[in-house]
Simulated scan of single mutants.
Amino acid sequence: MWPHFEPGKSEVRVDKVLVKGEGAVIIGHFTQLVTRTGKKLSTLLVMHLRIQEGEVICLHLYEDTLEIARTFDMGARGPQ
């Protein structure tokens, strides 16, 4: 999605990092300006990572896809 955001207008905030064994959870926020719509996207994100030998071997990203669709002016059938 990065090509759809205005360069230099993105912010990432990490609110919390939780680590236990080989697992980690990162909670934060992304804020970007969508070039096509001119709308600001601000969404909570959660990343769940599995780490082995110092390398990320699995990453799950959870974000507010409804808010993303609204910011991109997309409905169930794509851009409007």
Rank of each mutant, 00 (worst) to 15 (best):
W2S: 15
L66P: 03
V56Q: 00
S10P: 05
A24Y: 01
K40H: 06
V19C: 10
S42K: 15
A24N: 01
D64W: 05
V34D: 02
G38I: 04
R70Y: 08
H48E: 01
T65Q: 10
E63W: 04
M74A: 14
F30T: 13
K39D: 08
K20R: 13
F5N: 06
L66Y: 12
T71R: 04
K9Q: 15
W2Q: 12
V19E: 07
E67L: 11
E67V: 09
G21K: 03
R77A: 15
E55C: 11
G75C: 01
E53D: 15
F30P: 07
I68L: 11
I57K: 06
C58F: 08
Q32D: 13
K9V: 08
G23T: 11
E67S: 14
E6S: 13
A69R: 10
L61W: 00
T71N: 06
A69S: 14
G23H: 11
K9I: 05
Q52Y: 04
D15V: 06
T65N: 10
K40F: 02
K20I: 07
K40L: 09
T71A: 13
Q80K: 10
V19W: 01
L59I: 05
T37G: 01
V56M: 02
E22T: 11
A24F: 03
P7C: 08
G8D: 11
F30Q: 13
L59Y: 03
T31Y: 00
E11W: 03
L44I: 08
G8S: 06
A69W: 06
G38V: 05
V17Y: 00
V14E: 04
L66M: 12
R36S: 15
G78H: 03
G78R: 00
V17N: 05
L49Q: 01
T71G: 12
T65G: 10
V19H: 04
G78C: 00
F5K: 00
M47Y: 09
I26K: 00
G78I: 04
E22V: 07
T31W: 00
M1T: 13
K9Y: 08
R70I: 02
Q52W: 03
R13T: 14
W2K: 14
F72H: 06
S42M: 10
W2V: 15
C58L: 08
V17C: 05
G23N: 13
L33V: 14
V56D: 01
H29C: 07
H48S: 04
V12N: 11
G38Y: 00
W2G: 11
S42H: 14
G78V: 01
I27C: 09
I68W: 13
R70H: 10
D73Y: 06
Q52K: 15
D15E: 14
S10Q: 14
T35P: 05
G23Q: 13
A69C: 12
D73V: 11
S42D: 14
M47W: 08
G21Y: 04
W2Y: 12
K40Y: 05
